[in-house]
Design a protein around this nucleic acid. Structure first.
Lengths: 311, 311
DNA sequence: ATGAAAGCGCTAACAT
DNA sequence: ATGTTAGCGCTTTCAT
């Protein structure tokens, strides 16, 4: 017991005893056993973070932000990759529960509402990124894509674009629906509608496929808005191969502002999201919830249009 | 005890008892306590993976490969980001030990040999990616950058390049030293030497800085080989801004073959590394070591030159 | 200031 | 086929 007190800096031990304990610990290369600590105590100082695909450059940045914030407060991160599969998401959330994590952050959850709520409720605390949820169940950090995309679409219209197409991402993505809604909002203000629409996987190949389908459909289009930058970059290569000028013939807009966006030619116009800040904010909110001070339930981050060479 | 037997599928329980236990477990939403399991047993079915920077697109791919392999065998991954700091690396390896992971994979370790060995030895099993180590201490997966870069340099020389510069990465990177050695090997075969050399951080900004220093030094150069693609892409933008033609005036070669490499303009010639395979191979080797069947100690993967538009 | 007892949830070893 | 005992390493509670 005395040793325990000394090792945890609880005081209540004479200076001499303290020194002896510390010396013994050092000579034995003592390290506390996390399992024993966790078995008794009700805290594991571990947090789970779930992302749809770590291979998508958006998420490592979020993880990085979250990890830095976690570490600063003495928490370790358990990163779980779901590979875009809702089943895996449920599975992973259960595993995290078994591991007695103190809380979970779920990025862009792919599970439908009811099952998501079921998977999350048993957790002591949770924060969702880009997905609404009753405050009792989870805190939320939302990027206001609806406003962001409405704004961007208005800009496109102001530049004379009328025949706008949308290439969407996973059907289960809440933020994807918001992006689409924002576009429709702006379009409606001008009595316009989407002239074409495709849905695809949120990666380069998905962009290539969708752009090909779009080109094959014969619909004339003067702007394409994409669910994310990866899709936009894939589409860009198809447009270029088809001999279309970007932005001369067709304007192109991505979303996320990943590293590659400014490297392609022409550099991709996109909607910038502060990815590390997102992870940082989520982690702070989660730790607040874990520690019982639930200051705020919902944070909304405004994304920012970055016009580069494709609009 | 009977419940334990049923839950672990150990048999030795009547069909009727089994059903009752399972029913009770379901109605209680029973989930085993990982800490209690871990406290008793000597296995946690958790593996730690340490990377220098999760923000560098190379590593998420490795993690993805490792995670897929781990999950297939019932292990969970603990991902740790070191942000290029050797101290953090030692710290993280100790934390992983506290968490009683069954083993660790360390990617491109930044710690110097002695401390690295000390940090790794107490672990039950370890595999290092791109760093040699005595077989008793850790298994290794190595990409043969020396041969790869020698080959690539020979190709550059064959194309008439003579004034070759190298922009290196972190001084503590073993694989960086191998890359450099490969270049020197090929150069020496033709009685050549490096005409200039810079070292920098392995990211876009590092590439920009180093290329500026190179340009400012006044040395004429007709080819630049870079530690990785990120540096090469940063350098590319500087060269372009300086009005230099790539590859007309200067050839440029990266390393890793990250996604962005084929997206820049002109597309970057680079040395392709099978990143997911790397993670997969490391995880298999680690699990073999954990389970006592240490089939092989060292795997060498040959990288492959991909010539695109910058050479 | 120090220590003894008990228990967290699980399983290996040993009965019955 | 089923149950009992004990102990993994730690901390909380209650003495001394």
């Amino acid at each position: 017991m005395t040793a325990s007190r000394v090792m945890n800096g609880r005081g209540g031990a004479s200076e001499e005893t303290r020194a002896r304990v510390l010396a013994a610990a050092a000579s034995l290369a003592y390290r506390p056993n996390t399992f024993a600590k966790g078995l008794k105590g009700d805290r594991s100082y571990t947090i789970g973070i779930v992302v749809p695909d770590i291979g998508n450059p958006f998420f490592p940045e979020v993880i990085k932000g979250a990890e830095l914030a976690a570490r600063a407060r003495g928490f370790t991160l358990l990163t779980c990759n779901v590979v875009e599969d809702p089943e895996r998401e449920a599975e992973v959330l259960a595993t995290l529960l078994d591991r007695r994590v103190d809380g979970v952050i779920v990025c862009s959850a792919r599970l439908e509402d009811k099952r998501l709520q079921q998977a999350i409720e048993p957790h002591r605390a949770a924060v969702l990124i880009n997905r609404p949820m009753p405050r009792r169940v989870a805190g939320t950090i939302e990027i206001d894509f609806r406003t962001g995309l409405a704004e961007a679409t208005r800009r496109l219209i102001a530049r004379g674009r009328r025949r706008i197409a949308y290439i969407g991402g996973p059907p289960t993505s809440y933020s994807g629906r918001m992006r689409r809604a924002g576009i429709l909002d702006a379009l409606a203000e001008h009595g316009l509608e989407l002239v074409a629409e495709e849905a695809t996987t949120p990666d380069l190949e998905g962009g290539v496929d969708a752009a090909r389908r779009l080109a094959g459909s014969g619909t004339t289009v003067d702007a394409v808005i994409c669910y994310n930058d990866l899709i936009a970059i894939g589409a860009l290569s198809v447009l270029r191969d088809a001999g279309l000028a970007v932005p001369g013939d067709i304007a192109l807009l991505g979303c996320d502002d990943i590293l590659a966006a400014r490297l392609v030619n022409p550099p991709l116009s996109t909607i910038h999201v502060a990815k590390q800040d997102l992870g940082d904010a989520a982690m702070r909110m989660l730790i607040d919830r874990i520690e019982g001070r639930s200051l705020q339930h919902s944070i909304v981050i405004e994304p920012e249009l970055v016009e580069r060479g494709t609009t």
